[in-house]
């Protein structure tokens, strides 16, 4: 960790003002916002992030942590803690995929600290990114190369990769958001804007160090999940090497609107396998208007992973991902909805 100055934000506007006008992409900027701290402090201790100034936005928690459930949908303040949302009775009942994705993330201690806004911005677990003694990492040091391409890449992505980066997006909650067509409200120097959540994360392409469409000084203030007939028949399936405190080897967020076994609408997102929160539109299209059974689920899963590319250590992931999606679809179809 390097020396840095710490200040507490008293209002949103001044926090944004302080952090605007930085040249670097937000995740490398010398001024960083601190919410739960579960990613930022970690990365500062291991010298991956080296901000000069840390602005603690937790004093704003009261204003930005509301959980509101209306017939129109679900609004979640960005400073709400993971645990608060995960165990909110209406969220558990009306949006099971949201609650489950949050409950299956991290550990109880981390969930009590981590904010929703920070959660969707959490950074990859790629070992080569997290250890500065590896010189090659385009995400950490643009243009330096990617050690994972030829290195140990069991945990790495198979969807949305580029020749510059194959780091996996590690989160769970974002899969629920993207499956349910959530919007994200962002505050910045020029006021607030609301954009589809799917536009927040950016594919690595040849700029893997630019991970989101956030401009410098911008802060996520809330998420809005529209109501949908599929939301109650939803689940998050996380397949991993141990029972808890472990990132997904493959995961699936699935929401289904079924009528007599026929799919009126399906929403599918995949985790643990892609560089960004991954919406599997091709799989959704395969299912629409069909009877959901084992064979159809398998066809959808094939479609979801048609574009997968593997790198040695993760050669098993397309098959694991397909099986995960098939299992999630069949389990969602079998749910009893009251």
């Amino acid at each position: 960790m390097r020396p840095f100055s710490y200040e507490r934000a008293h209002d949103l506007a001044s926090a944004i003002r302080a952090a605007s006008h930085q040249a670097d992409a937000p995740l490398h900027a010398p001024i960083q916002f601190l919410a739960g701290g579960t990613t930022l402090l970690d990365l500062m201790k291991i010298d991956v992030m080296r901000p000069d100034r840390v602005i603690d936005i937790n004093p704003l928690e009261k204003t930005f942590s509301e959980i509101t459930v209306t017939p129109m949908g679900l609004r979640l303040g960005a400073l709400a803690r993971m645990s608060a949302v995960a165990h909110h009775p209406a969220v558990e009942r009306e949006y099971p995929v949201v609650s489950q994705a949050l409950k299956l993330g991290a550990s109880a201690q981390l969930r009590n600290m981590a904010s929703l806004g920070g959660n969707v911005l959490q950074r990859t677990r790629c070992s080569y990114f997290r250890d500065t003694s590896w010189h090659e990492c385009n995400k950490r040091d643009p243009g330096s190369g990617c050690a994972a391409l030829q290195g140990l890449n069991r945990k790495h992505a198979i969807l949305g990769t580029s020749e510059h980066c194959i780091a996996t997006y590690p989160g769970d909650f974002a899969q629920a958001l993207i499956a349910l067509d959530a919007a994200v409200e962002i505050a910045g120097a020029k006021g607030n804007r609301e954009v589809p959540f799917r536009t927040l994360h950016k594919l690595p392409g040849d700029t893997p160090h630019i991970e989101t469409s956030l401009a410098t000084g911008e802060i996520i203030v809330s998420f809005h999940i529209p109501a949908g007939a599929y939301a109650r028949r939803s689940l998050y399936l996380k397949v991993r090497d141990r029972e808890s405190y472990e990132f997904a080897s493959a995961s699936a967020a699935v929401a289904l609107d079924l009528a007599d076994g026929v799919v009126r609408e399906a929403r599918i997102a995949l985790g643990g396998v892609a560089t960004i929160p991954w919406r599997a539109v091709e799989a959704e299209d395969v299912l629409k208007g069909t009877m959901l059974d084992e064979v159809r689920a398998r066809v959808a899963a094939e479609a979801a992973f048609a574009g997968a590319r593997t790198f040695g250590g993760n050669d098993f992931k397309p098959e694991l991902g397909r099986r995960t999606l098939v299992r999630a679809l069949l389990e969602a179809a079998a749910l009893e909805i009251r």
Binding site: R125, S127, Y128, Q150, G151, L152, R242, E243, S244
Partner: peptide, 22 residues
């Protein structure tokens, strides 16, 4: 990482042991 004979999973998040739930 056999290319350079270096360890890559040097913490308790990545060096896996069972957690209580296991």
């Amino acid at each position: 990482d056999e290319r350079v004979a270096r360890y890559v999973n040097k913490d308790l998040a990545d060096y896996m042991i069972p957690v209580s739930a296991d």
